[in-house]
Structures are given as structure tokens and as C-alpha cells.
Design a protein around this nucleic acid. Structure first.
Length: 327
DNA sequence: AAGACATCCAACCGCGTATGC
DNA sequence: GGCATACGCGGTTGGATGTCT
């Protein structure tokens, strides 16, 4: 027996919302609220819509102060940081970005940010980059040669996908890792500090990610969850400030998140690593051996050594091909 | 100019969880 | 405790639009 449908699909309208429907829904909710019952709401206001559809429409578009498009570089970084640490928990990520909806962020991640990070250029980026190259080439022909080189440098190197990584170049300075062209491993900002509120948030979400490990290495990183064979020595996670809610622990107004620590996140979050084959050039067509990949994941423990003993321990555990599901 | 292809994003779907009885 | 119902979430789809060949 299947799940009962939430509404009668035969009589319910689907597809894009008309301005009239939007107006009805918006004015009703503004005046009366949702009444705590989305299922009954469409009937009350005479909409032939499913309650779930009304809820979605309100939350994603009609609600006040919703922002669409135009993600800033800081928003990019926050999304990336949280994604690496907690995964695709869009509602939590959205809670850290005022005016953004989980659906919006999810779409943005799937259609743009992921490509931006993992090296697949959008055609827009490709065109932009091609244009820049043409400009530079033209400039090369003659007295402009010197200026062209400078401009090219300013816009990024001539390697693939660089044009789309401006935010990252701005955000990162070099660390002793072997750079992967077009990847987020290209550089880091050693001077950055993790935002404390995000640390708290990540604690609250289960000690996830790099920030946790840096501050409290005895806390169990999420990669160990449900993996008895990988469990570190038993220890208790320090109590998270019980008063730290997602709301008050937000990152509004916070600074940028540290790329160095983002990369450290790859040491701890196997779930994320599993999804990053293409990022590391480990697709089915060109699998890399562990010896090739290991220096990228745990680059000679350089990061760990500079961070904490706990990091080193985790890296040693991770530093086995089987632990990352690799050959 | 037109067809093919890529991109974007609004909306839907189904599952897990919370809540009330 | 068990059940029914509603909510919230993340994954996915499909159509509109833009761009390329």
C-alpha cells in the first residue's frame, strides 16, 4: 500500500503560478498567516492548489525579503564552507544566508557553484575567458605586450577555468600543496580564521567538518559515524553551548571562511570526498592510485602538522586507500 | 535561419520526522 | 505505544530561454 497523496491530484492545479494566484496567497497570508495548516489553506482562499505547493510558493517567492540571483562571493564561500562540512542540508545553509531560500541555494549549487569549483566552465565563462585571451593576444601585438601580460595576470592565468575562479584567487594565498589547476586546492589564505559562529553551528550539527577538528580534536568527525571500524578512541564531544541556536549562531556579517580549513575538511568528510572524484580528476576514465591522490588529500600531513595532533591522528586514519573507497 | 545543445530555475515528488490523538 | 496526518526537506524533473554550430 502506497503513501496516501497529500491532496487530490485530479482536482489540483499544477505548473507555474499565475499572478492572480500569487496575489491571493500573498494577501491572505499577510493578513491571516498560514493558520498552521497548509493543507486547508488553499481551500480557504479558493485556490486549486496543493497545500504543499502553496507552502513552497510562499517560502520561495512570496515571502518578504526574498533575494533572487546575484550571489556574492562571500555567499559563495559560505555555501561552499557549509556544504563541505555538512553536505546538502540546504535548509541549514539557507538559514545562514538571509533572504536566500534552500531551493535557491540548491539550484545555485547544482547549476553554477559546483561547476565553478569543479572545473567545468559554463559557456558564459568560456566566452568570457576566450574574450580575455583575444584581448590579450591583440594586445600582445605591439607596444601593448607588457600591459597585456599584466592584464592577463590580473584576470588569472591562462589555464583552464581560471576566469571563473576570481573569488577563489581573491580568497586564497599559497600553501605548500600541489595545486590542481582550476580546483579549490589552488591556494589558501593562511591568515584566515574560522568564524566562531560557524564552528558552533557545525558542532551542533554533529561535530562536522574541519572547524571542529581543529578546535577540539577529540571530537568524533562525521566520517566515523556509522563506521565502527574507523572509530577513533572513545571520547566525549565537549558540550556545545546549549544556547547556540541556528538563528543566533548564524554567519551574518561574519568574515570570509578560510580556504585552508575548507581543504582540511577533505581530510574528515568522506561523504564529501566520495562526491569529488571529478574535482580530483578521479573519474572512471582516469582513476588515480592512492599514491597519487594521497598527497592531495593529506599532503604529507603538512596541514595537520601545523594545526594539531588531533588532525594528524585523523589524517593517519584517513590515509588508507580503503578508508576512502579507493583502489 | 534553424536545429541542436546547454543552462537555468520553478515546481513537483516522495521520504523522513514531528505532532496530536 | 500505535496510528494518522501534516510538515519540512532534498532530489529530481520539465519547460523556458539562451547560445552555438
Amino acid at each position: 500500500m502506497g503513501r496516501a497523496p497529500c491532496c487530490d491530484k485530479a482536482t489540483v492545479k499544477k505548473g507555474p503560478w499565475s499572478p492572480e494566484e500569487d496575489a491571493k496567497l500573498k494577501s491572505y497570508i499577510e493578513q491571516n498567516g498560514t493558520g498552521g495548516n497548509w493543507i486547508a489553506l488553499p481551500q480557504k482562499i479558493g485556490l486549486k492548489r496543493c497545500g504543499k505547493s502553496c507552502r513552497l510558493r510562499w517560502l520561495n517567492y512570496l515571502r518578504p525579503n526574498i533575494k533572487h540571483g546575484g550571489f556574492s562571493e562571500e555567499e559563495d564561500r559560505i555555501i561552499l564552507s557549509l556544504y563541505i562540512s555538512i553536505g546538502s542540508r540546504w535548509s541549514i545553509i539557507a538559514a545562514q544566508l538571509p533572504g536566500r531560500t534552500d531551493n535557491d541555494i540548491k539550484n545555485y549549487w547544482n547549476t553554477r557553484l559546483k561547476k565553478k569549483l569543479f572545473g567545468k566552465q559554463s559557456r558564459k565563462d568560456q566566452r568570457q575567458h576566450q574574450f580575455m585571451r583575444q584581448q590579450a593576444a591583440a594586445a600582445n601585438d605591439g607596444m601593448m605586450k607588457q600591459e597585456a601580460a599584466t592584464a592577463r595576470d590580473a584576470a588569472g592565468s591562462s589555464s583552464m577555468a581560471v576566469a571563473s575562479y576570481n573569488w577563489h584567487h581573491q580568497a586564497m594565498a599559497a600553501v605548500p600543496l600541489q595545486p590542481i589547476p582550476g580546483s579549490i586546492m589552488e591556494g589558501h589564505r593562511p591568515g584566515d580564521e574560522a568564524d566562531e559562529s560557524i564552528q558552533k553551528l557545525l558542532y551542533k550539527l554533529g561535530g562536522a567538518g574541519p572547524f571542529t577538528a581543529l578546535s577540539v580534536p577529540q571530537c568524533v568527525p562525521p566520517m566515523y559515524e556509522g563506521s565502527p571500524g574507523l572509530m577513533p578512541p572513545p571520547s566525549s564531544c565537549p558540550a556545545v553551548d546549549a544556547g547556540t541556536s541556528l538563528d543566533e549562531g548564524g554567519v551574518q556579517g561574519s568574515g570570509m571562511l578560510p580556504a585552508l580549513e575548507l581543504d582540511q575538511g577533505f581530510h574528515f568528510n568522506q561523504v564529501k570526498l566520495d562526491g569529488l572524484e571529478s574535482f580530483f580528476g578521479m573519474g572512471t576514465d582516469q582513476s588515480m592510485s592512492w599514491s597519487e591522490v594521497s598527497p592531495l588529500i593529506c599532503p604529507n600531513n603538512t596541514v595537520a602538522a601545523s594545526s594539531s595532533q588531533g588532525m594528524q591522528q585523523y589524517c593517519l586514519v584517513v590515509d588508507e586507500p580503503g578508508n576512502l573507497g579507493m583502489k
